[in-house]
Structures are given as C-alpha cells and as structure tokens.
Write a protein that binds this DNA or RNA. Structure first.
Lengths: 225, 225
DNA sequence: GACAAGCCTTAAAAAATCCATAAAGACCAA
DNA sequence: TTGGTCTTTATGGATTTTTTAAGGCTTGTC
C-alpha cells in the first residue's frame, strides 16, 4: 500500500511518515503543491494525504487538478482546526475525506483504513485476548456474561495493548498514539487510564492483566503461564 | 436494474455511480446530452438520471426527444438549487421526477425506488425493531394501537438506525447520509432530531431506545436484557 | 532501614459532550 | 398572506469523560 504525504511542516510530515511506516505502509513525502501534483499524477498511490496550506499550489488546487486528470486516488485532506468552511471546499475540490489538525494517529489510521476499504466489505472489530473479548466498534469489554463499556480513550488504549499482544508498549508510544503527536499529556495520564482499565478488567473477573515494566512500558498478559 | 447517468460534472457523476452500485444497481455514465440521448434510445435502461445543464444538448431536449421516440423509461431530472422554474420545464419535457442539487444519497435512492415501482405494486417498506414497527413509505411509527407520524428527516434517521441495527452509527455518517455530502449541518442538528425521535418512541410506549455512545455515535437498542 | 524513583489509586476539578426544550426561521399549501 | 408544519439554531443544564493533583505503595540501592 503506497501513500503520498504532501505536507510542508517538516515535523508533521515526518511524524506522519513514521506512523504509516510503522503500520507497514510505504510512504513518500513531498513538501509543496507542485511536487504533490506531479507525484500524484503518477497514479501509483493508494491514498494521498494532502495538507491545504502548502507552498506554490494549495491543496484544493492539487486535488482539483488530479481529478481533472482522471486520477481517482482517494484524497485525505488536512486542515487547521478553525477553518470549518474548508470542509466544503475540500470535498468540492475532490477530496474524499477531511481531517483537522491536530489529530491522533489512531484517527489517521482509521480514516486511511476507511478510504482503502472496498465497498461492502464488512469489518468486525472484535478481538479476544486471554480470557476476555473486546469489541472495538462498540467499546464493549466482556468475559462470559459480564461486560463493561469502555469510554473513548480507554478503548483506544485497550486496542493498542491488544494489538501489541505480548510485546511491551511504552508510555510515550501510548501518548503519541492516543493523545496525538503534539499533545501535552504526561505519563500520569496514561497511568490513570491504565488504572481505569485494570479496574474494569477486574470487574469482569478477567485473569488477564496489564503489567507494568518499570522504565519501559506496559504489556497485556494472560495468566496461563 | 440498469441505470443511465447523464452528468458532466465528473465528481458528481462518479459519486452517483458509487451510490448506485453500492445498492447493486448497474450504472452507466455518459457526460453529455448527445451521448445521453443515444444511450437512452437503446431502451435498455430502467431509469435515466439526467442533469439539465450538460454539453451539446440540454436535459430538457434529451427528455423530449426520448419521449418523442416512444421511450418510456422513467427520467429523474437533476437541476441546481435556485432554478426553481426548471421544475415545470422538466416535468413538461417528459421527466417523471425532479431533484435539486445538492441532495442526500438517501433521497436519491428513495426517488429511484419510487420511479421503478410499478403502478399498483404494493410495497411494504415495513420494518420492525424490538417492540415497534416502522413503515418507511408512510412514515408511521407504531406499537400496538399507538402510532405517530415521523416527518422526513426523522424518518430518514430512523431508517438509518434500523438499518444499522446494533452497530453504532456516527453523527458524521448521519449528517452525510441525511443532510448530504456538503451540507453544513452540525452535530446539534442530529442531536435535536434524535431527541424528537426519542420523544416519539416514548409516546408510543416503546421500550426500545436510541442510545448515545459518547464520542462515537448512536445505536438503536431493544430492551430485552 | 532510609531513601529515591517510578508507578498506582483515588478524589475532585475542569472540560467536553449530549440532552431537552424553546424560539426563530423556512417552506408550503390553502 | 396566513396558518401550519418542518427544520434549524440557541441555550442552560445534566452527564460523562478527561485532566490534574496528592499521597501511598513497591522496588532497588546504599
């Protein structure tokens, strides 16, 4: 899966690239609209992430030009928080989806997944670990007849823990993935949420546990050693 | 079911095609009036979606010419919002229905369904969920002897909720499907309608409820736990 | 044992989200 | 135009989520 990133803010661009390559996407980065258009016209990409405010040629223009040239690659448009009107212009100019900065990596990945999902394909976001199940789309954590609802951030963290199964995930990772690349959440935020999750795992009487590894991070473990 | 789309705005044309193919319709697209006429004359289509403002030969003319050649295929005419007078000309020229741009996908599908419904054919767009029934064609929501009428938007939202049964549907989704892809309706609009629906569900004494999942969306649930 | 560092839990404050309702506006038919 | 219905917008309050902060616990070191 090839993704083109058109973003002039170096810091954000490289963060994006990192998020994507971590998920095994191939990502190319260009820093202005002219290059974005040229690369996009090649037609080799599966998704184009396109910032609106970029040098030489803005994102709307790039999108329009691509569509004019019959390039149907899904476009995910990035814009600053407050420019709500951009949404309309964005979709009008041919973008398929639209995301305001700043955003959490998880959201980015979800949107890319949605854009590349074939129509009609049904996805069940149900996973199980150890002795419990977690349904990511409803946020329900359950074991047997017991179940609890996880709120948004709890669910995000649980997803990460399950996705990373028996490997250790650092607090830093959790922060950047759940709170976003430029959030100012600290390690205590993660600790608090881990605590909430433990209480809920406990409530459903799961024997699995979120283990802390000092100075390294957390790991979800099932107790069948 | 074969549908012909005659629309020169590439983006809209492909959006239309996508909406239709998602519903298992076969859709062909042509980009001007000449082609539209030629394809339409083949008589193989069950519906023709015809934009008024298209190159070479406008929609009215295409419609008239088709009718002159005894082609009875139902025609759904598309025109821009403000040209209200077109409605008359459209129906005069032989169109069967008429829709202003922009429109919500749900509306398009409803109109096509209406056009392809054979006269006298009785359709029961009746669905039930939990302890109540909803008749999508009359907009009647009922349980036992109690019933209320749902107005257009209430009905659209109810349809979505029922169609999505126990899965969560996001406000964004509801907005794009009910208000249209470039509307500027906000989450408050959805909230207001959900509130209306709850009141009506309550009025007919249904025990089903529309549950909100914070930061995620809504889900219709029947209370039989 | 005393200390420090990192982690845990909890309560409470702050913020975000959702709710119901009212009021204003738009639309349509008579 | 007027009255009625449908839709949008605004508001304050209720609820839930998220953040913050403080003190306690555990582990490792001296």
């Amino acid at each position: 899966m090839n993704i083109l990133i058109v973003e002039d803010e170096k810091r954000l661009a490289s963060a994006l690239k990192q998020i994507l390559t971590e998920q095994k996407y191939m990502a190319d980065v260009v820093y202005d609209g002219e290059d974005g258009l040229e690369y996009g016209l090649s037609g080799i990409y599966d998704v184009i992430i396109l910032d609106v405010m970029i040098p030489f040629r803005d994102g709307f223009s790039v999108a329009r030009e691509l569509r004019k040239n019959k390039i149907q690659t899904p476009i995910l448009m990035l814009t600053a928080k407050d420019t709500v009107g951009d949404k309309v212009s964005g979709l009008d100019s041919g973008a398929d989806d639209y995301m305001t900065k700043p955003f959490a990596p998880e959201e980015l990945l979800a949107r890319i997944k949605a854009l590349t999902r074939r129509k009609g394909e049904v996805i069940l976001d149900e996973s199980s670990f150890g002795d419990f199940q977690f349904n990511a789309s409803t946020g329900m954590l359950s074991k047997g007849s017991k179940s609890v609802h996880l709120n948004f951030k709890e669910a995000e963290i649980m997803k990460l823990l399950i996705a990373n199964r028996d490997i250790i995930i650092s607090k830093e990772d959790i922060i950047t993935k759940v709170w976003g690349y430029d959030s100012d959440a600290g390690s205590n935020n993660v600790e608090a949420y881990v605590s909430f999750l433990r209480r809920k795992l406990n409530f459903i009487q799961s024997t699995s546990e979120i283990k802390a590894i000092k100075k390294v991070g957390y790991r979800l473990e099932s107790r069948d050693d």
